[in-house]
Each structure stands twice: as C-alpha cells, then as structure tokens.
Design a protein around this nucleic acid. Sequence first.
DNA 1: GATGAATGAGTCTTCATTCAT
DNA 2: AATGAATGAAGACTCATTCAT
Lengths: 215, 215, 215, 215
Amino acid sequence: MRSENEPPGQKRRSVIEDVRRAQIIRGAVETFAEVGYGSTSLARIAERVGISKGVISYHFAGKDELVDQLVSTIYREMVEFVVPRVAPETTATGKLRSRIRAVAEYVDGNRAQLLALAEIFSNARGADGRLLYGHAFNEDLYRSQEEIFRAGQEAGEFRQFDTRVMAVSLEAAIDAMVSYLGEYPDHDIAAHAEQLADLFEQAVRADSGAGRTAR
Amino acid sequence: MRSENEPPGQKRRSVIEDVRRAQIIRGAVETFAEVGYGSTSLARIAERVGISKGVISYHFAGKDELVDQLVSTIYREMVEFVVPRVAPETTATGKLRSRIRAVAEYVDGNRAQLLALAEIFSNARGADGRLLYGHAFNEDLYRSQEEIFRAGQEAGEFRQFDTRVMAVSLEAAIDAMVSYLGEYPDHDIAAHAEQLADLFEQAVRADSGAGRTAR
Amino acid sequence: MRSENEPPGQKRRSVIEDVRRAQIIRGAVETFAEVGYGSTSLARIAERVGISKGVISYHFAGKDELVDQLVSTIYREMVEFVVPRVAPETTATGKLRSRIRAVAEYVDGNRAQLLALAEIFSNARGADGRLLYGHAFNEDLYRSQEEIFRAGQEAGEFRQFDTRVMAVSLEAAIDAMVSYLGEYPDHDIAAHAEQLADLFEQAVRADSGAGRTAR
Amino acid sequence: MRSENEPPGQKRRSVIEDVRRAQIIRGAVETFAEVGYGSTSLARIAERVGISKGVISYHFAGKDELVDQLVSTIYREMVEFVVPRVAPETTATGKLRSRIRAVAEYVDGNRAQLLALAEIFSNARGADGRLLYGHAFNEDLYRSQEEIFRAGQEAGEFRQFDTRVMAVSLEAAIDAMVSYLGEYPDHDIAAHAEQLADLFEQAVRADSGAGRTAR
DNA sequence: GATGAATGAGTCTTCATTCAT
DNA sequence: AATGAATGAAGACTCATTCAT
C-alpha cells in the first residue's frame, strides 16, 4: 500500500520494509536487463526474488511506482558515483572527459542497472501514451551539461555551438555506448569511452589552430 | 499469408492486397508512433484502420511479419530518399554533412515513420529475448558509414580515430535528433541538423592546425 | 451450394463439379490422415489441393457435408473392394477370415483413407455433441456381421455366443490393426491379419469335444 | 504453475490447491466425456466448474498439463482398482478374465472418466502432429498383457500365437466395450464383459485335440 | 465456376491487481 | 507482513463462413 515519498519525519518505513523494497528493486533490475521491458511481469520479478507475487503489490502501489523507485534508486547511485569524479576537474574539457570515463566505469560494474534503465527509458509510458522518462526527464542532466559547455565557451576553451544539441548528442552517444556493451558483452568499453571523449573534445574545442588533447 | 518479397514471376500479390497491406502498415506506423510499442496491439491497429481484427491476420502471417514488413518498407523509403542526396558529394566531409541533412529533411516530412521505427528498434524482441533490431541490425549501416570515415582518413581529410565508435555515436546522435523532435514537435530540426553536422565535422577533421569547415 | 444427394434424373452435377468434389475429397483425406481431425481446417485442405478456400464452400454446403461425402465415398470404395472377396466363401469361417484379409489388403494400399476415416469416426460430432459416426453408424456393419455369425452358429460351425459383442469386438480389433499400422508404418499387416483371423476363428468355433470355460 | 509430481519434501502443494486441481480435473473429465475433445475448451471447463477462466491457467501451466494430469490421475485410479482384482489369480486364464471383469466394473462406476480418456487418447496430439497417447503410450500395458500371454503359453494353458496382436486386439475390444456403453448407456456391460472373456479365453486356449486353422 | 477478401466468434495464454486469511 | 488464490481484461491467433466481383 504505502506509496508516499516519505516527507522526512513522517511515516517512515520500517527496516524490514526497506530491505524488502530494495530486494524487489534489485530483482526488477535484473529482470528488466535480462528479458526486456515488455517481458518483465510482476510474476517474473517475484519468481526471481523468490517471493510471492502479492508481496510486490503490498510494498508498491503498483507497477508504476516500482519502476519509478527503481529509476530514482539507480539514478541516485549513478550520480553518487559520477559526481565526485567530475567535480575535482577544473577545466570544462577535464569535466567532459572525466564524466564520460566515470559513466563507463560505472557501467562496467553495473551493467544490469544501466540496461534496465535503458529498457525503462525507451518503454515506460503514462496513461496518456507519452514516454515517462523521455528527453523531458533528462532535462536536469541536459541543463547541468549545458552549464559546463557554457563555462567552457566563456573560458575560451570551447568554440561556439548550440549547447542543447551538444548535450543531447553527448547523452545519446553515452547511451549508445552502454547499449552497445549490452549487445556485445565483450566490447572494450574503456577504450570506447576514451574514443568518445576524444570525439567530443574535438567537437567542442576552440579552433585556435591549436593544441592536441594530451591526456 | 503471403510473405514473399515477390521474387519475379512468382505468386505476385494482387493490387487490392498491396493496397490493404500498405494501409495496414500505415496504420501500424501511426499507432506505434502514438502509443508506443508495448501498447500497439493488432486490435488497436485494426481499429485505427477501420477494419476487423482478422483482416490483419489475413494479410500478414502474424505480428512479427507485420513489424518486419513495416521496418523494411520504411527503411527502403528512407534509403531511397537519403542515398541520392549523399552520393553526389565528392568529399567525405560532404557526405557526412549531407547525410545528416538528408535524414533531418526526411524526418521532417515523416515523423510518424521514424518514431515508429525507433519504438520498434528499442523494443521488438525475438523468442530468445534478444532485440530483433539492435546494433546487430545496424551493422550494414555502421559498415557503410565506417567506409566513408576510412576514406576520409586515407584522403587526409579526417584524423585517426576508431571508426566503429564514431559510427555508433553518429547514429545515436541522429536517432536522438529524431526522438527529440518526437517529444518536442516544434523543435527546429533543420538547425539541429546543421549543429550536428558541425559537431561531427569538428570531431573527425584532421588537426592541420588549420581550416574552418566552410559550409 | 449444391448439397443434394442427387436423386437420379434430377439436378445432376456437371462433370467439372464432380471432378472438383473428388479432388477436394482426396485432399481432405490426405489432410485428415496426416494432421488429424482437430488440425484439419478448410484452409489447410484448400492449400493442399492448390485452390482457394472459397471453392470448398462453393462445392460443399459446409464442413459437415464435406466430411459426410468423404465418409460415404471411402466407405463405398471399401465395400466395393471387400464384398467380392468375401461373397464367394461358402462357410462362415471362410467369410470371417476373408473379410479380415480383405480389409488388411485394402488398408495396405489405402492407408490415408482408413486413417482419415478413423480420425473422423472418433471425432466428428453433431451440434448436440454426440458422435456422428459412432457405434450407431456401424449398425449396418454390425448387423451384416452378426448374420454371418448366426449362420455359422446354425450350421454348427460356431459355438453359441452373443453375436453383438462378437461383432463389436471384431470391428474394434480390425480398427486397431489399422491404427497400429498408422502409428508403426512398417508393421506387417498381412501377418497381423492372419493372426487376427486365427484369433476370431478360435473364438467362435464350436467346441470340438473340449473343455468349458467354467470359472 | 506447479507441475511437479511432488517429489517428497519439495514444493508440496497446499490443500486448497489440491482441492482446486481435483475439482478442475473432474470438470474437465465431465466436459471431455460430454462434448468431446474438440469442443472442450478451457472456457467450457471453467464454466462447468463455476470458476473464472484464469483459475485454470493459475493452477495448470496450460491445457497440455491439465490433460496430462487428467490422464495420469484417471490411469492411476484405474490401475489401483484393477490390479488388486487381477493379482490374486493364479492362472493366466484367470488373470485374463478377471482383468476384463475388473475394467468393466470400474467403467460402470466411472463412465465419464473412461469416455474422457478415450476422447483424449484418440485426439490429443503434440506439436508435431503425432498422437500423444497412441499405441506407443499403451506400450507398458501391451507388455504386461503379453507377459501374461507368454506365461500361459509356457504353462501349456494357451496355444501359440502372436502375443502383440493378441494384446492389441484385447485392448481394442475392451475399449470398444467402454465406448459402446458410452453410446448406449443402458447396455449391460457386465454381460458384455463375460462374453468378451469367453471370446478371448477361447481365442487363446490350447487346442485340446482339435483342428488347426489350415489356410 | 472460382476467387480473394473480410468477418467475428472462439482458442489459449499472460498479466496487474485485489483480497481473505 | 506475507501469501496463495482468484479475477477479468487484453493479447495474438485460427477458423468456418459469407460475399462481391
């Protein structure tokens, strides 16, 4: 039943409930990653977790809430991994490359998580038929990336370009790196990440007739 | 029934059948684009077309064949649109930019088609659970794009880079352009395409210390 | 349309119609024998014959009439084969053995026909749910066999027994011989027929001085 | 779900589940017996039992499992009834007659069960189109019956004959007795059974001084 | 005479959800 | 807190039949 987003200090969940929710979310992640969005039923998740179907309904208001919690959980984890690796960088170029690298690193150790996200992003839809996690959902991500681009432009590191197009293209390329790994598990993602960083570094850098991106 | 791609002189379809098939495919395209893969049922397509559910089963062996025909139809149309616009270009750089432009132009007049494709690509799965139209399906596209990249590298137009990563990233960025338009119908796709062309032109061009991508 | 059993001199069918009907019946026989009653659809028959589905509906009032015509056609053929081989026999014992032999011979050259009949007999049902070709349909056959048994009893060739039970059991054993051949195509049906004839000859013959089955 | 034959100590079914399964099987038996294999749908069974269609899917993995469970349930019941009535007999002749009698007795109180079995045996087919419960399924039965015949032959009780043909014919005659009762509910099955026992006793017994069936 | 096209009822199956225990 | 049981709607697909051409 509980579906509140627990405003602090109010109706906090019991420990056991938290454990169950986490356990269910983990099972959901694995299932989404393995069989895809369309074939992931609550029954299948329950089976994987080793619990009864009803338990899921008990802990989550419905499939939608489960998906929602899953997304924000993974998202939070990823942000917690990536941010500390990007923040120390002082140049926009450095932030760009370290961001790509950090995602690649995270992905490498959390493939199921990312594949599950990808499945959900391209499939989950509201009652109105619109994607629940489409570009609009990425808005925050786009904005923060655009800020970095603008900072680079102002600092003279980057040439002038449409920051929105650049941000959208960057995210798309990163997602493709992830899904490529999903399809070809032996793909060398670290090398891919370096190539991708080169790609965008070249794409954004000020013309200057100038220097290589020594790394 | 009938699923042959009509090998000459063998079991050619009647005119009326062709019309119906085209009509059904059109309805399917619109439905996929509008409500997404998971919510597109044969019943819904039939309803949109204004025919009985059974008619679809009559003209197509099953949902799989319908999807398959849809994909190859749209794909063929797009190739027929894009190729003549890219072929005349003599430089790798020219081919790159004209390809992006051509896709953008095509998309502008065929949004539903592209959205439907995107839905199918990221969702349709075989009995084994693997994506039917994943990266593997794009292999031909990747290859032909890689050839252009390699030609540019050999001609000294392009710097050295991993052509596979570049091709995958390019396709991803183009797809993102399409889906962005899908979500924000007022988005200026022509401008987006130019920015995208700039992006990749910069990303691939030889360092030369030098020249602008005069366009 | 036409469904009349053509009372002589009235509404006789054209030659071409007869040919079509025979052709369709032949296709139906093969289909029933091959895939069984439940999987034999008009579509499948039409496909095998190489005609359009509608043709069958044109020539037969419905599936029921087709089946009915099929049954009586095969039945007539079989009777025409068996009767001349049984009639010349002068003893009841001779008739019994020659009947079993004749059926076995016929079956050997007409497996599909018999298998189709077997499928239909054990499956075809009327709107009320009752078997269309159950024991009641065999009534004539039972009667004629019973007459032979009674003749044998009156002549002192056969012992006293319930002729109905004997007739039913005989037909069942003959049918089993046929279906056994259907399942094991290499089965030696001629040898089976001799054994079966021995079996029933022993079963019916008058007690030549020997023991009663007191129990 | 659940399809195990409950290997001890593993996933035992709840009481209520057992009850439901038994209830559904009973409903299926009655439906098969009444309207035949081809007209027995899950919907019809559910309707007869007075439950929702989905309940059947909940308790059985599919129609195939339901049929399979039904067959083995009835089969087991019948074996449990027949074996203790046959085992005490010391002579092959005694075993033969008591077997026929026991089946007849069982049938008398369990008509629907036997009719359902008959429907399934002559109709259920696998994906390959072959009968699921054809002669091959009866193999065990044939074998055990053949052993009795061979024992009788070795003891000098029975004449020499092909035990396979005898076994197949015996089973066919027993089945015919059952189906005859199905079609004529007032038929005197006990008398039929005695006649049948006489028939086979005569058919197998050693030739006490009398004539061979010269051919 | 023949056909392709269309229909609508009916098949099995899957699923998210609800509820009594 | 958990579960097994049940539901009913929706899914893809099959089929006998009808009908205009």
